[in-house]
Amino acid sequence: MSMPFYVSPEQIIKDKADFARKGIARGRSVIVMQYDSGILFVAENPSTALHKVAEIYDRIGFAAVGKYNEFESLRVAGVRLADMRGYSYDRSDVTGRSLANAYATTLGTIFTETQKPYEVEIVVAEVGADESTDQLYRLRFDGSVADEHRFVAMGGSAEDIEAQLRQSWQDAISLKQALAMSVGALAAGHNGDETIPANQLEVAVLDRNRPRRKFRRLTAEELSDLLGSEVGKDSENTSAEDAPAESGGDVGVTDAE
């Protein structure tokens, strides 16, 4: 008669965490960064249809890496939570903090109570009246939350990217500077020299100067203008609305390179 193997709780948690970390590390990276008039989201994402960065509410944006189906259902839940709160109370009562708490509880429960943890890492960003009131919450697969400042990088080469960003960081930079810094750091995540073409980038901002809905995606033309002429030639085939999602599989189930 065989005895069931004893596995210690520490080992179970560790195995789950390693599994989730590996899944997340396979994907491409996303940077969320403060600039003088808002918050910038830059994702390496060749798909124009399957987004890694999205609008949740008037002042709140969402960025994620990892398994697409998992973070997509979290995004949809976040939009619902925010819309329901705003509809039953008032639009001004929807905050990034409460959303981050809800995500944290959900991710924590999934991590401890299910066989397979979510292989995702997300950022909930809320743009404030000025830079000091901007909020960036980073949520990990196990439900841990960190209140971040200045920038957050997630995904495969997050550590290299954050190291690069720490070196080049300056306060109160313009959108153009922030974008150049992010794209440079993403390229550094690929061991250096190669530049990332504009059609491989998904870029959006939470612009505090916009009237109500602060979230806006940058069009291919704007992106080329901001990045300078060396990527401008790509603008013909990067039109965000028109390009077919032929490479959509990249952010699909595994997000593997």
Partner: peptide, 14 residues
């Protein structure tokens, strides 16, 4: 996922 202050399961239905 109910009863813990997190997102209720209905919210995750797509």
């Amino acid at each position: 996922l109910n009863g813990t202050g997190g997102i209720p399961s209905g919210f995750l239905d797509t």
